[in-house]
């Protein structure tokens, strides 16, 4: 029983960390960032390089964050900004970015699977069971990250501006908000959250250029369900991620793999007909 509960909350935590960057870009820029999976991969390869230089993952994570900011800044300014008037083209552009990034990674690191050293490989005892220590740590990080996001959005000027842009970009401009800067800042933050998430999940997964793809579709569905709220995303990951764990455990993992997608479609449909 306790194991199932831990599976649910830790899986939700991992999904939350992975989907957060996608959510804030979707909320503010109104585009689905298809380069999200490529950004996850960049984070993964930061961990690979860190391993090569015998640097702990705990240092790789902030490095991944900074690299994400830089890459996000460059891409927003050069690729996305000229396209904002054409939202569909902007989404296509993120797809293009994704292809280019994956090919660059392949050129530099090759296509084969890479491995990053994990700072923690063991299990800890909780009550009378043992459980993966890293998953517990990830859950804690997800909660901290969620709290930081809520604080930023609810209690800072920039967060208020971002919420205004989310709700009505034209009106936000008319209120004197530099929406161009808000978009720029948000894209950098979203990219950084993605690269950081990519580094964070490396102790659980292996790293190859397309490592982000399987995560993208689930994150995408969760974001569609959650809308643009960092709090809703928490509930969505807990509800849908939890359902996935339960289905995987009590029915089978193949149906489990479809759970988030199917439930999301049902939720979105129900919401439409309300």
């Amino acid at each position: 029983m306790l194991t199932h509960a831990l599976d649910i909350v830790t899986s939700a935590g991992i999904l939350y960390v992975v989907a957060l960057g996608l959510l804030i870009i979707f909320g503010v820029l109104k585009i689905i960032n298809l380069a999200h999976s490529a950004f996850l991969a960049i984070g993964g390869y930061v961990a690979v390089v860190a391993t090569e230089f015998h640097v702990s993952l705990w240092y790789a994570i902030p490095i991944a964050l900074i690299i994400g900011i830089v890459i996000g800044a460059i891409l927003e300014a050069t690729v996305l900004r000229p396209l904002y008037a054409r939202p569909l083209d902007t989404i296509l552009a993120t797809w293009g970015i994704s292809i280019v990034v994956v090919q660059l990674i392949t050129l530099i690191f090759g296509r084969e699977t890479q491995f990053a050293a994990s700072p923690i490989t063991g299990a800890i005892s909780i009550g009378d069971i043992t459980y993966s220590e890293y998953r517990i740590i990830l859950l804690g990080l997800a909660l901290v990250l969620g709290a930081i996001m809520v604080f930023l959005f609810q209690a800072t000027e920039l967060g208020l501006s971002a919420r205004a842009v989310i709700m009505n970009e034209g009106l936000a401009q008319a209120m004197g908000i530099n929406t161009r800067f808000v978009r720029f800042f948000t894209f950098c933050a979203g990219a950084a959250l993605a690269t950081m998430a990519g580094a964070l999940i490396t102790p659980l997964v292996s790293i190859e250029p397309n490592m982000g793809l399987p995560w993208l579709i689930n994150a995408f569905m969760l974001v569609l369900v959650a809308g643009s709220s960092v709090i809703s995303l928490g509930w969505a990951t807990l509800g849908l991620g939890g359902a996935q764990v339960l289905v995987s455990t009590f029915i089978n993992p193949i149906i489990g793999g479809l759970t988030i997608i199917v439930l999301s479609v049902l939720v979105l449909r129900a919401r439409k007909t309300l």
């Binding site: 919420r163 009505n168 009106l171 401009q173 008319a174 004197g176 161009r180």
Partner: peptide, 27 residues
């Protein structure tokens, strides 16, 4: 850009969708 015009001392009161419905009055 609009924000620069606003910041040089202009207030604009639109007719439609003029407030952020989900924010509170203070916000």
């Amino acid at each position: 850009p609009t924000y620069r015009i606003v910041r040089c001392g202009v207030s604009y009161v639109p007719q439609e969708q003029a407030i952020f419905q989900d924010l509170n009055v203070g916000e």
